[in-house]
Design a protein around this nucleic acid. Structure first.
Lengths: 132, 132
DNA sequence: TAAAAATTTTGATTGACTCAAAATAAATAC
DNA sequence: GTATTTATTTTGAGTCAATCAAAATTTTTA
């Protein structure tokens, strides 16, 4: 997968992809800590470098719900959306509401060349509802 | 308007609302600089304090497109959406795609109690299209 | 007008993220 | 396989939006 994109295969990258495979919507710090358990010499900077590189090559997707750090996920290219808990910040995926290429058409595009519609649902997750 | 919400009427708040009235999607720094022209003794902290207070009382709305600082606008309660230019960061409003309470229903709510659907369209604005 | 409450100012601080350059590892050419 | 080139990683400093805390001031209430 990395080679297909002309990227070097490094232990840090493999570890990062492994972490994301087991933990969608992880932030840079979470990924760093998880990778650090395997590779004690790794650095935050390497994590940031690779996150940017992988995003640029479309291997991972970056989202940034208000109030949270950037989150990363392996699901790319399917234009799925997210529900975010206002209370604990938990994020879950939801398939696109409308169809394949969904809400790509706003009521008025103001002559913008639109390539993505990002949808974020906000609410309270089940466990935070209980704790209230 | 401020009094209706039990808030003190201060010169800084009036100036801020005036700025937002003339300039939707302004960030804290922009608002500070504009207010500073009227009230040379004002501080960034006062701006931040009031932005939070006004947001909490629902008098203004805060959005935070990825890569930009928090932006503020007077249009509240109508669940409108935004188009953001990937190149220059310009933001424009779009009315809700679907209707009054639009996309409030995702394909699967995962038992979240959802209260808002935030839609951000990403693309290239007309003037950035020309400069390409 | 005085007392109480809210706001503003001032200054320090945080934290995610970035920048830059030397050190190292991976890929390519021989 | 080894040398060379290229890409990645490490290290350390630095940025910037935003936050925290407390004293000073303004606004509101009595």
């Amino acid at each position: 997968m990395l080679k297909d994109h002309g990227l070097s295969v490094t232990s840090v990258r493999l570890a990062m992809l492994g972490v994301l495979d087991g933990h969608a919507h992880a932030d840079a710090d979470t990924i760093f800590n998880a990778v650090f358990k395997e590779i004690a010499t790794t650095s935050k900077q390497a994590i940031y470098n690779n996150l940017h590189t992988l995003v640029a090559h479309g291997l991972i997707r970056e989202i940034k719900p208000k109030g949270l750090s950037c989150l990363y996920e392996l699901r790319v290219g399917d234009n799925h959306h997210h529900i975010v808990c206002r209370s604990c910040g938990k994020v879950v995926d939801v398939d696109c509401v409308v169809g394949r290429k969904p809400c790509l058409t706003p009521s008025d595009d103001h002559d913008f060349l639109i390539d993505e519609a990002e949808v974020t649902f906000w609410g309270i997750c089940p466990s935070c509802q209980k704790n209230k």
